[in-house]
Design a protein around this nucleic acid. Sequence first.
RNA 1: GGGGGGAUUCCGGAGCGGUCAAACGGGGCAGACUGUAAAUCUGUUGGCAUAGCCUUCGGAGGUUCGAAUCCUCCUCCCCCCA
Length: 433
Amino acid sequence: MNFIEEVKWRGMLHNIMPGTEEILKEKNVAAYVGIDPTADSLHIGHLVGVMLLKHFQIAGHQPIALVGGATGMIGDPSGKSAERNLLTIETIRHNQEKIKTQLAKFLDFSEDKENKALMVNNYDWMSKFSFLDFIRDVGKHISVNYMIAKDSVKKRMNSSDDKDAEGLSFTEFSYQLVQGYDFLHLYKEHNCKLQMGGSDQWGNITTGTELIRRMLQGKAYALTSPLITKADGGKFGKTEKGNIWLDPEKTSPYEFYQFWINTSDADAEKYLKIFTVLNKEEIENLVNEHNEAPHTRILQKTLAEKLTTMVHGKDAYDTSVSASQILFGKGTKENLQSLDEKTFNDIFSGVPHFNINKNSLEEGINIFDLLAEQTQVFKSKGEIRRLIKDKGLSLNMEKFTNPDEPVKSEHLINDKYLVIRQGKKKYSIIITE
RNA sequence: GGGGGGAUUCCGGAGCGGUCAAACGGGGCAGACUGUAAAUCUGUUGGCAUAGCCUUCGGAGGUUCGAAUCCUCCUCCCCCCA
């Protein structure tokens, strides 16, 4: 199956420039996706672009990940209503390194591979460009009329249409030109004929193809993916805690696994197509299986398995599964007590920890002081009071219903831990020392 | 430069001298139902204390027994005219 057909059935194709499919009939074509190094980790929102590259490489072509060191210093106005904060070069370099390690989990960078993945940083060529040279050699070829016709710019210019819009600085206005030049540079240096990205990048990409046409009389192509949505209209990839990161320090493997497990039925098939490399038949079988027995949540489990294994490895996946079984299965106090320390720590490694002095429990401590003062499990005592009233608080897997009941040393699991649960899903543990 | 409108609790948005911790909707949280899904229903959603108290309605002052509500000044936003 060729690349275009592949992304098409996966629902990853939004817009494509005529001729793209033909050019991809050639062997080993290069294409790139830009990644902003705004943090030192990718988050799952980046994964669509990464998967585009992965499928591209699987199809026998060469994927290039462009880290936007230069563009990251500017800030893409697309889809944003306010000016962006700027990054320093040190930060960008640091971020680039971390991101490359993560990309290596998806793309094959090995030297001996004919279509090995590449990673480049546009800071490396843009930083050598003087302002004068840039506006003379590049700016000359694109008219302002062309640039302001782009949606991303237009939206920010008509601030009256959108009361949140802030206008845009010259810096942001220049963004598309700088990105366009990236494409031109890769076209020249790596014979890169295609740029891919989210549908919000269409305008920026076409500035690049236009620049290539005018400056080099070359022909370059564009392909975009739809922005990922959730069936309930919420933002994909966010939880109340923010982004889901690939970095285990930022999002623990357990939380990562839980994110995918919690995918709604309405989204699961779509996500399987986008985020895994399972083929059409495999996914169809899973969907059938799911329809037979929805409660087994085979789609969510497969999603979580594939993604967690890919990003964090088999061991982390296994731990996440067993942790989830204890935490969401018919976990009881006895289960908790039967765990050895090592297993206990593994299971709760992804759960917020709070420390407390062991002596505080000798006399018994009331639940409010314990959870809102000695520790910050909850923000206020009122919140705890409400939770208890609503039957939403558990201590060591047992409902905590009496606000006057003191917490004592006897409650400790393994003479050391308290497991606090809010509602069904949110756990915290308190460690005495 | 002239004229007008506005800033309210997470968001939107009522309130226009006491009965306002502040309607209503959204969101959040919890419960029921389930499948750690969706939908639905119920409760809850400033803080502290078990009917009370304390801090909130852009900022600073003032009037009043009493203000989110009235007055003055300030800051910021929007609209119309030049």
